[in-house]
Amino acid sequence: MSHTIVFVDDDRDFLAAQSAFFAARGYVVHTAEREDRALELLHEITPNVIVLDLMMERADTGVALSHKIRQIEALRAVPIILLTGVVAATGRRLDLDVAALRRWAGIDEYLDKPVTARQLLRAVESLIHRSNQDSASEEA
């Protein structure tokens, strides 16, 4: 069975490239360039993973959107990856209190842009694996 991913990012080129890369690996890819479009999409489908860009219309769009997604019953357990940034030189996260965000916005994984498609693929695979295990243990 193929897995479904939703990418939310305001960079059209990034979306086009991720679609091609993940489609080549058998994923069903949906993309949205805006917050409202993403919410519409997520009411229609329940993906296996959601990838969100942190900065879109506003500096914290990704976080706010993640919080909203978690309010949707069907999406409570769907893994969310937030694409964000660090300052390479200091290695310090600039604007995020990771632990607080994990609690409030239910974000499972953070990746720094510019992320490679392979890094993203590894993160997606491991999150899908984990959620499969979680649901298996719940059923047991």
Binding site: F14, Q18, A20, K113, V115, A117
Partner: peptide
Amino acid sequence: RSPLGAIRSLLEV
């Protein structure tokens, strides 16, 4: 970072 990320993804494809 945004354009670099986009360029990297495009080339990766």
